[in-house]
Design a protein around this nucleic acid. Structure first.
Lengths: 215, 215
DNA sequence: TAGATTGTTAATCGATTAACAATC
DNA sequence: TAGATTGTTAATCGATTAACAATC
């Protein structure tokens, strides 16, 4: 068990801090105060200090934070160097795009296998990896022990495949299947659901409500 | 102006309600109580009743909610039938996948144009639409008046293109560019940032923190 | 040292949950 | 009618913001 002691809102903000600090480092910033960073990010300085202090005192009174050091530290906290071995299931439009477009290495992952149930896709090379048939997942997992799976499959198949993958040792899911995976009674499995359609509908609401109010 | 009176957490939950109700409708449910729905969705019944009552009293005491009717109503609230004319900029891996994979129609959008700065891409057909060169965006907007833009371009180009699109009448952005668009002093523009890399890093954190705690 | 800015505690704000009267 | 379940108000909880003493 042992749920993280850090609250979800804080964790969700970490990648954004990481992103901004990386940018600042590139731009040559050596140090930055919580106030300066808060203005750039559109947060309060208080929140930044509270957030960072969940993990330790990374700043220095009267000086601020060392940009490079803080960037590196947050990367460490996020697990940027974990190299989690990862498989991707479903080499359709979206799956292929995710495989090619996302820099897994930079985010703490290593893409080691791509699978699809369509025999026509088998053998295709995506992002330097040859697509295998889903039938071979079990064998692959036993040999290579991946810990993470990206699901780019229809929602009807998602839960079943996820359950099977858990028995094969998968500990984390990046789920694009328009379905909320349920991993009941199993706190050791982490799931990140990406609901692109939900995101788009939130945008629809924004446009709709603005239009209604003649903004 | 006129910021929505509904809080962001509520709005973000609407698409999920919509999804679950659609599923229930398909499964033949005629009515459902807040308690029953709360169990299926992993929320409290209180929250569901509070959320729905932001928009009106859709239920009936002693009975619950009519599934079909509630589904339809939430769709209406989200603006599922708005048919927002939409252009997509950046026909790379991700852009093409989004264009093909997302059912824009079903979410209140109509994809009417795809643009890329690479002349090699011009003329390619993606999701039934011929890719045009970005140089022609201005002309296109003046003729077709799209209201929404999907940005699948590198982060370095995002802000500049977005600014230009705003002058051409674009009111909403679905932004995949790994960059937080800033539309200052302009409440009439809505932005939905999709940070796939941030999502992946949140997953990295989950795996990392679980591993640390020997879960 | 004086000035700046953190780390941290206390106050506020907002969101979630609980309770219950209204009512189908 | 009696039972069920809503709509809504009140209580609680947690997250954000403000304040300030500690300290570089």
């Amino acid at each position: 068990m042992s749920k993280s002691l850090i609250s979800a809102p804080v964790i969700k903000r970490l990648p954004r801090y990481y992103r901004f600090l990386g940018e600042l480092e590139k731009q040559g910033f050596i140090r930055i105060s919580s106030r300066e960073l808060s203005e750039k990010m559109g947060l309060t300085a208080s929140q930044i200090r509270q957030d960072l202090n969940c993990f330790g005192g990374f700043g220095q009174q009267g000086y601020g934070y060392n940009v490079k050091e803080l960037h590196r530290t947050i990367g460490e906290i996020l697990g940027i160097n974990a190299g989690n071995r990862t498989i991707l299931i479903g080499a359709g439009n979206l799956g292929s795009a995710i495989a090619s477009h996302i820099d897994f290495k930079k985010r703490g992952f290593e893409l080691v296998g791509i699978f699809d149930s369509d025999p026509e896709k088998t053998g295709q090379i995506i992002s330097g990896i040859s697509v295998s048939h889903t039938d071979s997942i079990e064998k692959f997992c036993k040999e290579k022990n991946p810990v993470c799976a990206v699901l780019c499959i229809p929602k009807t198949a998602a839960q079943e495949i996820a359950n099977k993958l858990v028995t094969l040792g998968i500990k984390g899911f990046w789920n694009f299947s328009h379905y909320d995976l349920k991993m009941e009674h199993n706190d050791s499995i982490v799931v990140e659901n990406v609901h692109l359609a939900d995101s788009l509908m939130t945008l629809a609401y924004g446009l709709h409500s603005n239009a209604e109010n003649n903004v």
